[in-house]
C-alpha cells in the first residue's frame, strides 16, 4: 500500500485499466504521457498508491475525461453495464 497513512474507510477507486484498454495504451505509454514511471501506473491500478490532485488531473487530461469519470470513492460498475443497462453516456 501507499506509504502515506490514510483513512482505511476512504479508498480511491479508478478506471485506469479499462480506459487504457479502450485506447490501446500500455502502462508505459500512459506513464510517459503523465511523466511518471510505469510502476506508478501499475501501483495506481492495483490500489497501492493514491494519486495527488496534480497527477489525477494530468491523467484525466490524457483521457479527456472529468475527474469523477476516472476516480471515485465508490467502486465503479463495469463500463458496459453503465452504458447499456443504465442508459448512461
Amino acid at each position: 500500500m501507499s506509504p502515506v497513512r490514510r483513512g482505511k474507510e476512504l479508498p480511491i477507486y479508478n478506471r485506469l485499466p479499462v480506459l487504457r484498454a479502450e485506447r490501446g495504451m500500455t502502462r508505459a505509454a500512459l506513464a510517459d504521457a503523465v511523466e511518471v514511471n510505469p510502476q506508478t501506473i501499475g501501483a495506481l491500478e492495483r490500489g497501492d498508491h493514491y494519486p495527488s490532485l496534480d497527477l489525477a488531473f494530468r491523467i484525466c487530461a490524457v483521457f479527456d475525461l472529468p475527474v469523477e469519470a476516472v476516480f471515485s470513492r465508490e467502486p465503479f460498475t463495469p463500463l458496459s453495464t453503465q452504458v447499456y443497462r443504465e442508459g448512461g453516456a
Binding site: A21, T26, R27, I41
Partner: peptide, 16 residues
Amino acid sequence: LPDDDPEDFEEGMENA
C-alpha cells in the same frame, strides 16, 4: 516492495 509487475515494462499493446 512488492513483486515487479511485468506489465509495467510492456512496450506495445494491441487495440482489441
